[in-house]
């Protein structure tokens, strides 16, 4: 029997419409399981993910945030994911610098044919985030509430 009380992390997954979202679809139709607490947010392209979306997700209670897009070179808009990659590298490093462990953020390239990879990525990511526990830090950067 599954342990009901085990901590289930809330995960926001930004998936680009053309590859990763279709990859998630494939994972579903192939009956591969991934944690139900992964909330998929469909975006037109990985570079549509404004850094503020990520901060917002954390502030609203996400324990981890993952961006998924087409493989570099395969972006539907040619170069969107290259820009997204730079932005994410800087923002995630900054979040780490502010005390949000780097395990809580990830970028993964998942194509429409990679249902398997999608499920595996989400399972692995959820496991990492679960081991880090709840994330209240970003919402508490300026002493709104106390941490525990």
């Amino acid at each position: 029997m599954p342990v009901e009380s085990a901590f289930q992390p809330k995960i926001a997954a930004f998936c680009c419409n053309w590859c990763s979202y279709a990859g998630a679809d494939l994972a579903g139709s192939s009956r591969l399981s991934y944690p139900a607490d992964v909330k998929i947010i469909r975006v037109p392209c990985s570079c549509r993910v404004n850094p503020l979306f990520i901060l917002r997700a954390f502030q609203r209670g996400a324990d981890g945030v993952i961006i998924c897009g087409c493989h570099p070179g395969d972006c539907h808009y040619t170069s969107g994911n290259y820009f997204a990659r730079r932005r994410a590298a800087l923002l995630f490093s900054m979040l780490d610098y502010l005390g949000v462990e780097s395990g809580r953020t990830r970028v993964e390239w998942v194509s429409a044919a990679e249902g398997q990879k999608f499920a595996a990525t989400m399972n692995d990511f959820a496991k990492t985030v679960a081991s880090l526990g709840k994330c209240r830090r970003i919402g508490d950067l300026r002493c709104r509430t106390s941490e525990s």
């Binding site: 170069s79 290259y82 820009f83 730079r86 994410a88 590298a89 953020t105 990830r106 970028v107």
Partner: peptide
């Protein structure tokens, strides 16, 4: 500027 350009060989975040 670094965020308005890119290189195909940029490192992967994380």
């Amino acid at each position: 500027s670094p965020l308005t350009s890119y290189s195909v060989n940029d490192p992967e975040p994380g």
